[in-house]
Structure formats: C-alpha cells, structure tokens
C-alpha cells in the first residue's frame, strides 16, 4: 500500500499490469494515496473534535457553575429574600425550604466543580487525588445535593410535571453516583466512567436549563412553558447523549491503556503485596 507512494503513476500501473483485471481494478496513485491517507486523517480530525468538544464542555460548565454560584449569593442574605423565593411565597414549610435551598446551592457550588475536575485527564492521571476528591464529591452529592434537591422539588414552579422532572434528575444523580462508586470499588472502570458521566450530565442540566430559559425568553416563549421545556429537554437529552457516548466503541490509545493500567494498579490489592515483598525481601536477604 504505502510502497506506491513516491512512485510515478506509470511505474505502479506497470508493476501490476500483468493481470488485466488487476490493472482495471487498480485506481490511480493519486486516488489510492487519498483513500489510504484519509482514514488516519479522518480519525485525527474526529479525535481533535472530540477532544475539544470535551474540553469546551468542561470549560462552559465551569463558567456556568461560577455564574450560578455568583447569582445564588443573595440566597445567603438572611434579611432579604431573593426574587426566586418571593415568587413562591407563602410556602408551607418556609424555614425547611429555605434551609434546603441554601444547602443545595452550597453543595452544588462545591460539588459541581469538583466533579468537573475529576473528569479531567490531569486528575485521572493522579489516582490518589482522584480517589480522595471523588470521595469528597460523592459525600457532597449523596448527602447534601440530592436530599436537599428532593425537598426543593416539592415546591417547584410549574407544578407536578416540574416536580417529577427534578425528582427524576435527582434519582439519576443518586443512583449513578452509588453505582459509579461500587464500580470503582470492583475496579470496573468502564462502568465507573459511564455512571459518572450520568452524574455530570444531570448536574450540567442546571447550567443548560438556565441558558435555555434565557434563550426561550428572548424568543418570546411563555415563561411557564419555557420553564418546563428547559427542565425536561436537558434531563432527557443528557441521558441519551451519555448512553451514546458510553456505548460508542472506543479505540483505546496506548496512552489511555497505560492510564487505566496505572489506576488499576493503584486500586489493586496486589500492589500492596508487591510493596510488602519489596520491603521484606531485602530484609530476608540481610538475615541470611
């Protein structure tokens, strides 16, 4: 295949022109070179785009998370209620609801950037850091973010359909976090990655949904309808996108294989045995 490159058109044809059928089937050198070079080029382009789409998503989510945090600071003003809360007044359990709102906002402000950081190659290359930050993020999500979200969903704007949307999103986050942690503990890194993508995906709904609310308002859509669409569309779309990404056959690069091997080694009890042996052997030799 590659040997044709550098040869003239005539030489290549002459070399294979002994059989008339093969000569007929042989495309020109120009075509051949194009078709063989196209495969790695296309792969390269796809890799380039998937890399930058992933990076772009992380950056956008970080910016969105920072914006939401900045906009949510008035929730911690105990004298004045923010407009989002005023719209809901009077509430049945106002003190509980306000406490849940503050816990939810604080947990999201901490948990979402941590989860985004855990998706970066920089932290995935450092298994010890990844594990400890992952534990912190897991605790925040499971014991603060999700339970407070359930409390808030009971008084969601837009009625039951919105409540169900928030509860569904919370259930996905909670169950994916539990199954992701369990997968990590049994060293099933593929399932771990899939579950954590669901967690990140549902957390990203907070950003996408707000962006949609702004966009639909600019388009003159009724805010009540916009609120429902801006919740349900990202919740369902995110589940679909994560499943598509997770089921896509991955060409594992040498770099990625090395990374997974390294993480597995870090998690493996064998590593402990090897370390103990490395410590004991010289001592045993010393004792002889």
């Amino acid at each position: 295949m590659g040997t044709f490159t550098g040869q003239t058109d005539g030489t290549a044809r002459d070399a294979l022109s002994l059989h008339p059928r093969s000569a007929r089937a042989l495309p020109s050198i120009h075509e051949k070179t194009k078709s063989f070079e196209g495969v790695p080029r296309r792969r390269g382009v796809r890799k380039f785009f998937s890399h930058w789409v992933g990076r772009g998503f992380l950056i956008l989510m970080l910016v969105g998370s920072a914006l939401i945090t900045a906009m949510s600071l008035p929730y911690f003003d105990f004298e004045t209620l923010p407009p989002f809360v005023v719209e809901k007044l009077p509430l049945k359990f106002e003190a509980l609801w306000l406490a849940a709102l503050r816990v939810h906002v604080a947990a999201a402000a901490l948990g979402f950037p941590l989860c985004l950081g855990l998706m970066t190659r920089a932290l995935q290359k450092r298994p010890l850091w990844h594990r400890w930050i992952g534990r912190a993020a897991g605790v925040i999500v499971l014991f603060a973010l999700v339970p407070s979200g359930f409390v808030l969903s009971s008084e969601a704007k837009g009625g039951r359909i919105v409540t169900v949307g928030f509860v569904l999103s919370g259930l996905i986050v909670g169950s994916a976090m539990v199954s992701g942690v369990r997968a990590a503990r049994r060293r099933d890194l593929t399932s771990h990655a899939r579950a954590m993508r669901h967690v990140i995906g549902q957390m990203s709904v907070a950003v996408v949904s707000r962006a949609l609310i702004v966009g639909l308002d600019a388009a003159g859509i009724d805010p009540d309808l916009a609120y429902v669409v801006a919740l349900w569309a990202p919740v369902l779309a995110t589940v679909a996108v994560v499943e598509v990404i997770s089921r896509r056959p991955m060409a594992w690069s040498r770099h990625r294989v090395e990374l997974v091997e390294r993480i597995t080694r870090e998690l493996s009890p064998l590593a402990l045995v090897v370390r103990i042996r490395a410590f004991v052997r010289p001592l045993a030799r010393f004792g002889r």
Binding site: G64, L67, I68, M71, S72, P82, P83, F84, E87, K157, S209, R210, A211, I213, V214, D217, G220, P223, Y227
Partner: peptide
C-alpha cells in the same frame, strides 16, 4: 430594578 434577566431560575423580567 430588582430583576435583571439573570442566569437564574427566577421568572424572567416581563417584556412589558
């Protein structure tokens, strides 16, 4: 003045 079309779940400011 209080509403400013922010990146929030609050109801957007009315157009009129």
């Amino acid at each position: 003045e209080r509403r400013s079309g922010r990146f929030s779940r609050e109801r957007p400011a009315p157009h009129e």
